[in-house]
Amino acid sequence: MQTFDLAARGLRELNQTLHTLNGTTNQTAWEIVNTRGSHAIAVGVDAPLDITVRGTTGYYCAGMNKQATIRVKGSTGPGVAENMMSGTVIVDGDASQYAGATGRGGLLVIKGNASSRCGISMKGIDIVVHGNIGHMSAFMAQSGNMVVLGDAGDALGDSLYEARLFVRGSVKSLGADCIEKEMRAEHLELLEDLLRRGEADAKAKPEEFRRYGSARKLYNFNIDNADAY
């Protein structure tokens, strides 16, 4: 295990070091300490590393991650794992707004609560939140899956495209064009896998969730839907 003291060596050296590894090393286990809410920790990583971030982070931790497994032993600021391509990001604490924004692949697990706009514009990422999610979550979400063990805030899935949303608790309100949909066998199977990979299978069962998705009424302009624009 390599330990990197962020306070002592700085952000630029951290990211440069992680970028240089690029899958050609056997130094695959890293621990980052003294994070103190810094921004852009472990962004743009493109190697099968196992990175543990000890402490709380600022904006965009693990942004655009590829391949790496990044565990945050603390809470994350806005935009954790934004535009993630692949790999896994696990946040032990809470995540601020925009968690997993525009993510295209991989798995984001938030063991606490996620704030507003979780999964905004998601494009293929899977997100598992053990707690609750805030307002405007999954806004314009295009594809991928979001699993929420707790409750969802206002306007869930507003202007949703083809992302699938599974919520176990209450939904404060649904956004424009988002509706509850039938839970079929394929969805239960998908959920079972996501709960297992999201380290949540001991906490919840697939049958306890409801599924939400797009009504697809906004897909082509119609003046009779003008109130939703």
Partner: peptide
């Protein structure tokens, strides 16, 4: 705080 950094 506007950011968590302010609270650390």
């Amino acid at each position: 705080g506007s950011e968590y950094r302010a609270l650390v």
